[in-house]
Structure formats: structure tokens, C-alpha cells
């Protein structure tokens, strides 16, 4: 394994006409780590991932996989990466085993080696019971497992997964998460994008937040949870009987308490103090004011809160959190605009 990071992106830009899809991002991901790539739709996640997979090219900047430039040596890069796109079509009249067999042939496996390889991948992704089922008749979860199996056929060092959990039911998500965990334990570098931040938080060693084509944070989940908490205080879940709207109405007329989010029978509030006595006072006041509180408990800040707060900071012009991204250097490659 080379000493270079598994993924290195330096001052990467990708413009589509006037649209700045990727706007000067830089980051590094070490070997054997799992990195989550988070951002709203259109933030530049897929474009960055496609460049890393050598399927697109940068307008400017450098992208490397294990020290190999994706623009200069795409063939070498393709041997190192496994790519899972956010959506892909399946073939008609082709069974699961034939699908994997085709890609194994395409990756250069032949004879017994090919069959063993397909068998191994099918067992790992639990596709053996589906071997003879037509690939276009699979559920979304099965399709994603098939796609993961395909991307593992040539034993890549780096896995690039674009929204692999999108559209999956909870059971399929758990299965996929398990497979990713096993792959991470095996030492593979995994670069994964998702909208489900809580899951990314559990799986990933680090998180990259991208917004408007720029990296706004690079660090672990805990740093992010704490670092974005500009307002401080503590979060509480409040459940009441009767009208849940009463909780938000109560917060409006009471200082130092902020209503954050409606829930089925109450809501989520922020108390502007970390002192437990202060929380007890708030609860007592709620009951005194006639709220029929049946539940009142402290909650952890989750990654969704952190992400929203992060975007809020940027919108307010306060800037993003300091990230672990390397400092940009001069661009090494400037291809012409296509027409």
C-alpha cells in the first residue's frame, strides 16, 4: 500500500457553464477509514465522486486515488476503486449470477477463478438465494446489494458509494450498514455520501460537509456536534397530553426557552443553560401554567441539528467550522472548456 492518502483532493473545481458544481474543494482521506460525504441536493457530492471515479474530469485541480492522478492515469485508478452510483438500471433477461458473471468477465476473471470470485461475492452480499432471479425483478435493497457485489468483484482498495442507502427500507438499510462495517473492518477505504446523517455518524470515522460546491467542515461526528453548537444550552423532549401546540405557545411567552421542532404529542425545546436546576425550574413552570407534561427528558444534539446549524452559520456569514482540509495549492491541470 502506498504512503499517499487513499483519497486526496486538492483545490478541485468543476464548472458546467455558469454553474459551479464543485468550487475549490480540498480534503484527504487516509487508508482504511470510512468518510461520510454530506450535503444538500446539488451541493456537488455526486460530481466530486464521479471525478474521483474517473467518470468526469475537473475544470481545475487535482484528484488522486492512492497517489494516482485520476485525470492522468484513469486506467490505473479504475483498478483501485469500486463505484456504486446513486441510481443504475438493471438488465432485462439476466439473472443475478449472470449479472455478476458478466462483470467478473469484464474485470478480466476467467474460468474457475471467475466462478469462485462470483460465488464469494454472492455469499458476502447474501445474494446466493437470489442467484437465479432476474436482476430487473429485484427489490431496491437487493439491487443495492447486487451493485455492492459488482463493485467488490475486482477487490478494490477504495469504495466510492453515492447515496447507497437512498430509497431503502429500514431492514435493507441495516443490512447495507452491516456490509459497510464489515468492509471497513477489512481495511477498505470507504467514501460514502448519504442524506441519513444519523447513520453516517454511526458508520464514519470522519464527515465531510459540502455546501454550494465548497467543503464547510471536515472532522469527526462529535467535533461537529459540539463545534456547531453556537447557542449552547441543553435540548429537551417535552411530551404532553391534549393539544401539542400548547408547548410551542408556552415557549413563545417564556424567555430563555426556545421551541425547536414539533413532534406528535409535543416538541423539542432548547433551554439556554446547562444547569439541571434550570431545567427543573422550566418543568415546574410548565406544570404550573397548566401544561399536562407526561414526559420531559434531555436529548443529545444530533447530526441533523449540527448540519442545520452549520448551514445557518454560513447563511449568517459567520463562516464554517475550521476543518481538517489541507491548504489549497496552485492548480496543476487546466483542461479546456468542452463544447
Amino acid at each position: 500500500m502506498s504512503t499517499a492518502p487513499a483519497i486526496k483532493v486538492n483545490n478541485l473545481y468543476r464548472y458546467f457553464g455558469q454553474l459551479k458544481a464543485v468550487n475549490g474543494i480540498s480534503f484527504e482521506i487516509p487508508h482504511g477509514s470510512v468518510c461520510g460525504f454530506v450535503g444538500a441536493n446539488g451541493a456537488g457530492k455526486t460530481t466530486t465522486m464521479r471525478i474521483l471515479a474517473s467518470l468526469d474530469y475537473p475544470t481545475m485541480g487535482v484528484a488522486e486515488i492512492c497517489g494516482i492522478n485520476v485525470v492522468h492515469h484513469p486506467e490505473e485508478v479504475r483498478r483501485l476503486i469500486g463505484w456504486m452510483p446513486d441510481h443504475f438500471g438493471n438488465y432485462e433477461h439476466m439473472t443475478v449470477v449472470e449479472y455478476l458473471d458478466f462483470y467478473a468477465r469484464a474485470f478480466g476473471f476467467s474460468g474457475k477463478e471467475r466462478k469462485n470470485r462470483v460465488q464469494e461475492v454472492m455469499e458476502f452480499t447474501d445474494l446466493v438465494p437470489l442467484a437465479d432471479r432476474f436482476s430487473n425483478k429485484l427489490s431496491k435493497g437487493m439491487t443495492q446489494r447486487l451493485c455492492l457485489g459488482r463493485s467488490l468483484l475486482h477487490d478494490p482498495q477504495v469504495l466510492i458509494m453515492d447515496e447507497p442507502a437512498a430509497g431503502l427500507d429500514p431492514k435493507a438499510r441495516v443490512e447495507l450498514k452491516h456490509l459497510i462495517r464489515v468492509l471497513a473492518q477489512e481495511g477498505k477505504t470507504i467514501f460514502i455520501s448519504s442524506h441519513i446523517l444519523s447513520e453516517l455518524g454511526e458508520m464514519c470515522d470522519s464527515l465531510l460537509f459540502v455546501n454550494g460546491g465548497r467543503i464547510v467542515h471536515h472532522g469527526d461526528a462529535e467535533t461537529l456536534r459540539q463545534g456547531t453548537d453556537a447557542l449552547g444550552g441543553m435540548l429537551y423532549d417535552v411530551q404532553v397530553t391534549g393539544d401539542p401546540q400548547a408547548v410551542s405557545d408556552w415557549c413563545v411567552i417564556n424567555p430563555h426557552v426556545e421551541f425547536l421542532e414539533s413532534r406528535k404529542t409535543g416538541g423539542r425545546i432548547r433551554i439556554e443553560s446547562t444547569d439541571p436546576d434550570r431545567a427543573a425550574e422550566v418543568l415546574a413552570r410548565m406544570i404550573k401554567d397548566g401544561l399536562k407534561v407526561v414526559e420531559f427528558h434531555k436529548e443529545q444534539r444530533n447530526l441533523e441539528d449540527a448540519f442545520i446549524d452549520m448551514l445557518g452559520r454560513i447563511d449568517r456569514g459567520e463562516g464554517a467550522l475550521p476543518s481538517a482540509a489541507p491548504k489549497p495549492v496552485l492548480p496543476a491541470f487546466t483542461p479546456p472548456e468542452s463544447n
Binding site: 474460468g111 474457475k112 466462478k115 469462485n116 460465488q119 464469494e120 461475492v121 455469499e123 458476502f124 467488490l152 468483484l153 475486482h154 477487490d155 478494490p156 464489515v182 468492509l183 477489512e186 477498505k188
Partner: peptide, 17 residues
């Protein structure tokens, strides 16, 4: 890939045709 190796060890190799 080393990933599926443990499972593969338990599986007899497919019969060549």
C-alpha cells in the same frame, strides 16, 4: 478481495463444465 474469503472457504468450488 479478502472480504468474502471466510465464507468462500466453506463452499465447494463450482463444477467446471
Amino acid at each position: 478481495m479478502s472480504t468474502p474469503a471466510p465464507a468462500a472457504a466453506a463452499t465447494p468450488p463450482p463444477v467446471a463444465h
